[in-house]
């Protein structure tokens, strides 16, 4: 394994421009998805599935809740030194 002896070689995401393009694509696809929903005829099993942008909001809120709970509740409770069991 070579240790960073070819640092002069530029890789795909070493250029900030490429990262910007990627993020741009990502954010625009979010907007497209939000707009797309207006053209979809839904047939929901549950009433809330018919609410506007239900899945988008749920996905965002669920992930934030997940991370916050894991970081501020689970980790302080469960974290131990690496050699705890030794």
């Amino acid at each position: 394994m070579k240790e960073k002896d070819d640092t002069d070689k530029e890789y795909l995401f070493d250029k900030p421009r490429n990262v910007k393009i990627l993020l741009g694509c990502f954010f625009s696809s979010l907007v497209v998805l939000l707009i797309l929903e207006f053209f979809v005829h839904k047939h929901p099993h549950f009433p809330w599935e018919g609410w506007l942008e239900f899945y988008a909001v749920f996905g965002f809120v669920a992930c934030v809740a997940l991370v916050v709970a894991a970081k501020y509740i689970l980790r302080p409770l469960m974290k131990r030194r690496e050699d705890y069991y030794d």
């Binding site: 990502f26 979010l30 939000l34 909001v57 996905g59 669920a62 992930c63 991370v67």
Partner: peptide
Amino acid sequence: QLLFFSALAFS
């Protein structure tokens, strides 16, 4: 939507 907005939350 669910997945992309999860990704948004991550980023």
